Amino acid sequence: MSGNPPAADPTASSRVGPPERELVASARAGDGEAFRAVVEPYRRELHVHCYRMLGSVQDAEDVVQETLLAAWRGIGGYEERASVRTWLYRIATNRCLNALRAVSRRAPADQPDVAFPEPSHHRAEPLRLEPCPDALLDDVVDRGPGPEARYEQRESVSLAFLAAVQGLPAQQRAVLVLRDVLQFRAAEVADMLGTTENGVAGALKRARAAVAGDLPGRDRAPLPGSPRERRVVADFTRAFQAGDVAAIVAMLTDDVRLSMPPLPQEYHGPDAVGHFLASVALRDDRRHVLVPTRANGQPAYGLYVRDPGTSVPHPHGMLVLTLAGDRIAALTRFHDNALLPAFGLDA
C-alpha cells in the first residue's frame, strides 16, 4: 500500500458500551438472539479480514463460521477487557493462522495442459489467491473518514496488495494486516497473537519491507466508474475481443505484470506480456467475449471463448485489470470457471 495507512477506527480499542454489555450478559446466559445481535455487526468486516489473510472468499467464509462458533462456545470466558470487535478479531486471526498451516500442506497447483512461454519470473510457492466481488467489499472499504482513507482501504483489498501479502510468512501477514490495515495497537496485536510488542514491531518491519519491494510505486488508479476508468476499460475490451495484441501492448505500463494464480509463472514487461498473449491467450482464430464485472475494487471480466465453427461461447475463467493512470499495470488471469457464479456470471 502506498502513502499513509488509513485513520484508526475508534471502535478498535474501545471497551464494551452499556447496550452491548447487556447483550453480552444475555448471551452468557444462553440467549442466542442476544449473541447474534452482538456479533452480527462485525460479520462482514471479519469476512474481509479473513479474505485478506487467506486470499479465498470461500475459505474466509468458512473461517468466519468457525470464529462465530468459537465465540459462542467461549462467550462465558469473555471478560470485556477489550471490545467485542477486538475479541472477535483475535479469534478470527488465530483461526486464519490455523488454516494457513493446513494450506501449506496441500499439494502444489496443477500445471495447465497448454505450453506456456518461458516466464519472466517464477514464484517459489503457488500464489493462492482468488478474486472477490466488489459487492462483498463495498460496505467495509468505504467506511474511511474522507477520500484519502477510503482510497487506502480500497488499496488494501487490491489484488496487487493481496498478492504481496500472500507471499509473507503467516505471522508477518497477520501483523501487517492488523497493524497497517486495521490500525490495532501493537499491544493489542501482541495479545491477539500471543507474542510481545517487540516481536510485533520486528515482524511489522520485515513485512513492510517485503511488501514495499513487491509493490513498485506507480500512478494511482482512476476512480471506480469514472470517465477515465471507463475509457481505459472500453479500449481494452475492444482490443482483446478483436485479438489485437499490439493495441493491448500499447496500453501497458513499462513494469506491467501478468500472473495466473495459483500458477507460479509470471510475465513482466510489455514484451513478455505481449508474447504470452500472442502465443497463448489470443492464439489461433479463437475470439473472446468479455463480460464486465468488478473484483477487488478493480475492473474485471468473465471470459468466454468462441471457438472457430461455433457461435456458442464457452466459459474461460476471469481476468482482472489493475490500472495506473491511463494505462494497465497488471493483468491477473484466473482459470477456474467455478469463480464465475459469485460474480453473477454464467459458468
Rank of each mutant, 00 (worst) to 15 (best):
Gln183Tyr: 05
Arg257Ser: 13
Val175Lys: 00
Val245Gly: 11
Ala186Gly: 11
Phe236Tyr: 15
Asp235Asn: 14
Leu178Gln: 03
Thr93Ser: 09
Ser13Arg: 12
Ser279Phe: 11
Ala107Ser: 11
Phe343Arg: 00
Pro131Arg: 04
Asn98Ser: 07
Tyr304Trp: 04
Asp336Phe: 15
Val63Arg: 02
Pro133Gln: 01
Gln241Asn: 15
Phe35Asp: 01
Ala37Met: 11
Phe276Arg: 02
Pro224Glu: 08
Asp9Ile: 14
Asp138Ile: 11
Tyr304Met: 01
Asp180Arg: 03
Arg286Val: 12
Arg15Glu: 08
Leu97Ile: 12
Arg228Phe: 13
Ala234Pro: 14
Pro315Phe: 13
Met318Trp: 15
Ala12Ile: 14
Leu100Met: 08
Ala338Val: 09
Val289Tyr: 03
Arg15Pro: 06
Asp214Cys: 14
Ile328Ser: 11
Val84Pro: 09
Leu290Ser: 03
Ala347Thr: 06
Arg36Glu: 15
Asn337Glu: 06
Pro19Val: 12
Leu136Trp: 01
Leu215Phe: 13
Met53Glu: 04
Ala92Leu: 04
Ala324Tyr: 10
Val312Lys: 07
Pro126Met: 10
Val84Asp: 01
Asp255Pro: 13
Asp307His: 10
Phe184Asn: 01
Ala234Gly: 08
Ala135Cys: 10
Ala37Tyr: 05
Phe276Val: 03
Ala210Glu: 10
Leu319Lys: 06
Asp336Tyr: 15
Asp254Val: 15
Pro6Ser: 13
Gln111Thr: 09
Ala212Asp: 13
Pro261Cys: 04
Asp142Asn: 07
Leu46Ser: 04
Ala201Ile: 10
Glu125Gln: 12
Arg179Val: 15
Asn4Gln: 10
Leu282Glu: 00
Ala324Gly: 10
Trp87Glu: 01
